[in-house]
């Protein structure tokens, strides 16, 4: 049944991706304020971080507290390679993603053996370790002052990335490509195996699935995708900073996916958009953004008790099936709502 769906699914995804990219490219032309482009580039970077984290949290049930470590390794590896002045941007990107995948392979091999909360703790420990390496290894990374001196942007294929509009276009294309890749992974047989591991690891094991290898696979892939987010940010701010690897960055990614919701594929992007927008405007109007942001989060969590995209999705589902819907019941749900592979498409926002 699945293989039958896969091909039209892919076509639909590609069509959707092309439409999304076109929209992203047209948007700044319709509203040519530089601030909109800036905002969207940050959205791409953190969106990739949140989306890739959700491959672990939502898809596989691995709650990582240390995902930003790979966001940072991507940024630093890319920045350092570009600063040598001998590498082209695409090559540096590939090397940074590959290097991060390698780091994730080593760390992941240790981490994925641990269960539940202990997995969370050890990912956090490794993240703090990577952060302290960045801060301590001053001769390479510049320590707490970050990678200084700017990251050069030599032209690729005649495209001058120093032009803010071209830079934006390139980031948008990379972003959409990565989202498409993540979509394919989550819809592949591998992706369904991961869902099975999340819902019932014992059964998966019984069916002969190598649970550890599968988890490691998605851990490495998610890390690679996070590193793309990191290098987009590094390219844009023309530097890399140890704060990228601090636990607060991982924390923020978690809040993005929780705000958006973990069950719908693009939910984390909704959360990213929400948090970025909130942060943007609250920072402008008040210095007490902690108070405002904290209150908003509390209201959403206590009021809706779930991610925004999940709520909207349930509401749509409820209307569609016209059954008396029971969203956010008071009973704590041990088992998550069943994964909704194709239905999820209908409620894609963004």
């Amino acid at each position: 049944m699945r293989s039958g769906l896969l091909s039209p699914g892919l076509l639909r995804d590609v069509a959707f991706a092309i439409a999304a990219l076109a929209l992203l490219l047209v948007l700044p032309m319709a509203f040519p304020a530089p601030a909109l482009r800036d905002f969207l580039i940050y959205f791409f970077a953190y969106g990739l971080l949140a989306m890739s984290l959700n491959l672990l949290v939502g898809l596989t049930g691995l709650v990582s507290f240390g995902h930003a470590a790979y966001f940072a390794t991507g940024a630093y590896a890319f920045g350092l390679l570009m600063q040598t002045g001998r590498v082209s941007i695409p090559l540096a990107m590939l090397a940074a993603v590959g290097g991060t995948a390698l780091v994730a392979l080593v760390i992941g091999a240790i981490c994925v053996r641990l269960k539940e909360i202990y997995f969370s703790f050890i990912t956090l420990a490794f993240q703090m370790f990577i952060h302290s390496v960045i801060v301590t290894w001053v001769s390479l990374t510049g320590g707490d002052q970050g990678l200084r001196g700017g990251i050069p942007r030599p032209p690729i294929l005649g495209l001058d990335l120093n032009d803010a509009r071209v830079l934006y276009g390139a980031c948008a294309a990379v972003f959409v490509l990565c989202i498409l890749a993540m979509r394919q992974v989550s819809q592949s047989p591998f992706g369904y195996t991961l869902r099975m591991i999340r819902d019932n690891p014992a059964r998966a094991n019984f069916l002969g699935v190598d649970v550890t290898a599968m988890k490691l696979g998605i851990f490495v892939f998610a890390a690679a995708m996070a590193s793309v987010g990191g290098l987009i940010l590094a390219l844009f701010v023309s530097g890399a900073y140890p704060e990228f690897a601090f636990w607060t960055t991982s924390g923020e990614a978690i809040f993005m996916i929780m705000l958006g919701g973990t069950t719908i594929f693009l939910g984390p992007l909704v959360g990213t958009l929400l948090l970025q927008t909130l942060n943007h405007f609250v920072t402008i109007y008040t210095e007490h953004h902690g108070l405002v942001l904290g209150t908003v989060i509390l209201v959403i969590v206590l009021g809706l008790r779930r991610g925004l995209a999940d709520v909207v999705y349930d509401w749509l589902q409820g209307r569609r099936t016209t059954r008396p819907n029971t969203p956010a019941g008071p009973t704590p749900e041990g088992a998550e709502p069943a994964p909704l592979p194709d239905g999820a498409l209908k409620s894609r926002i963004v």
């Binding site: 978690i254 809040f255 929780m258 904290g294 989060i297 969590v301």
Partner: peptide, 10 residues
């Protein structure tokens, strides 16, 4: 975690 984070901010 999210609730606690909000509380820390506040």
């Amino acid at each position: 975690l999210l609730v606690c984070y909000a509380m820390i901010l506040i």
